[in-house]
């Protein structure tokens, strides 16, 4: 980039920094308020057995209501989320330590999150809970069926699990092949059936449709018929393009070329839809920065009270 461009970028960043500084100095923003609620559990004799407080996020405009208070942990979290969002966006200007730091946090936290969720949702209730149900009920999942008995067949998946984790050991890597084979075999088994039924047989059946489509009055619906014929021709020509056992020459070549055209339209549609998706995601992140963090007049601030009519008057909103 030339010097003029650098100067323009510098001005843009300075303006953004001044705006942020102005918001910090003057505006109320970047705070999270919560409403506290006391949960009380009574014992069989009616006495209070246990109680604790739960906190629910409320819109900032309700901060003066009774029981609403500023949440320090969530406010810190909001700022952490906003700063990390900006760190990720900083990659657009170029690779930098802020981006790499944010990336490292998400890698580490996500991997551990998956481990935790796997432990509490599957390993404890479905593995340990089947082998030693009484013990599992005493601490982790007391809601397990009280009549459930130990099922020692589950020692086999436990053994396979240990063998899978053996992969982390410096020697005996082959041991993990057994559970891996189980995994691969099972995947091959259910995918074979699933794909053949839903993506092969059902798709062929759905393509064998009448070319003459009748309308409500019993006559021929010309446009629907053209659509049906085009679809059938499209499927066949695309399949011929995928078929490489025949040389793509003559009629086969021309049909294959038609197939390519159909595929290009498919990819064009895919591109259009992908753009749509990505912009929606960007909108959501910018809404987070503008509304949740910077409080630039959130259209959903009144969501809880349900009295907002800030947008879409044309829709009767």
């Amino acid at each position: 980039m030339n010097n003029r461009a650098n100067a323009i970028w510098a001005i843009i960043f300075v303006v953004a920094a001044i705006f942020l500084g102005w918001r910090i100095a003057t505006g109320n923003f970047g705070r999270v308020y919560v409403k506290s609620q006391q949960v009380t559990v009574n014992a069989d004799d009616g006495s209070v057995a246990a109680s604790w407080e739960t906190h629910t996020k409320v819109p900032p405009r309700d901060h003066q209501e009774e029981g609403v208070s500023l949440s320090i942990p969530r406010t810190i979290g909001l700022w952490a989320g906003a700063i990390l969002t900006l760190c990720i966006f900083s990659f657009l200007y170029g690779d930098n330590p802020f981006y790499k730091t944010a990336e490292s946090i998400v890698v580490g936290a996500s991997a551990a999150y998956l481990m935790v969720i796997g432990f509490w949702t599957q390993i404890i209730p479905n593995l340990i809970g089947n082998i030693v149900p009484d013990w599992t009920r005493t601490w982790a999942t007391p809601g397990l069926d009280p009549e459930a008995k130990a099922d020692y067949v589950y020692l086999l998946p436990l053994m396979l699990s240990i063998m899978l984790l053996w992969r982390l050991a410096p020697v005996g890597g082959w041991i993990s092949r057994w559970p891996l084979a189980f995994f691969i075999g099972a995947t091959a088994g259910f995918r074979l059936i699933g794909f053949m039924e839903a993506d092969f047989v059902a798709q062929i059946r759905a393509t064998i449709i009448p070319i003459w489509v009748k309308d409500a009055a019993g006559g021929v619906d010309i446009w629907a018929s053209i659509g049906a014929l085009t679809m059938i021709v499209g499927v066949i020509s695309c399949l011929i393009y995928f078929f490489f056992s025949l040389e793509h020459k003559g009629v086969v070549g021309k049909t294959a070329r038609l197939g390519i055209w159909f595929l290009m339209v498919t990819f064009g549609a895919g591109f259009g839809y992908t753009v749509m998706g990505r912009i929606a995601l960007l909108s959501q992140r910018l809404e987070f920065l503008f509304y949740e963090w910077l409080w630039l007049d959130s259209p959903t601030a009144d969501a809880v009270s349900g009295t907002a009519s800030l947008i879409m008057p044309a829709l009767g909103g």
């Binding site: 912009i279 959903t300 907002a308 947008i311």
Partner: peptide
């Protein structure tokens, strides 16, 4: 269910169609 029109969060998708148009 017209009473839902009063709830701003029930129109999140509708709200996003503004940026969508300009982006496209």
């Amino acid at each position: 269910y017209p009473h839902l029109a009063k709830i701003a969060t029930a129109k999140e998708g509708l709200r996003r169609m503004g940026p969508q148009l300009v982006g496209h």
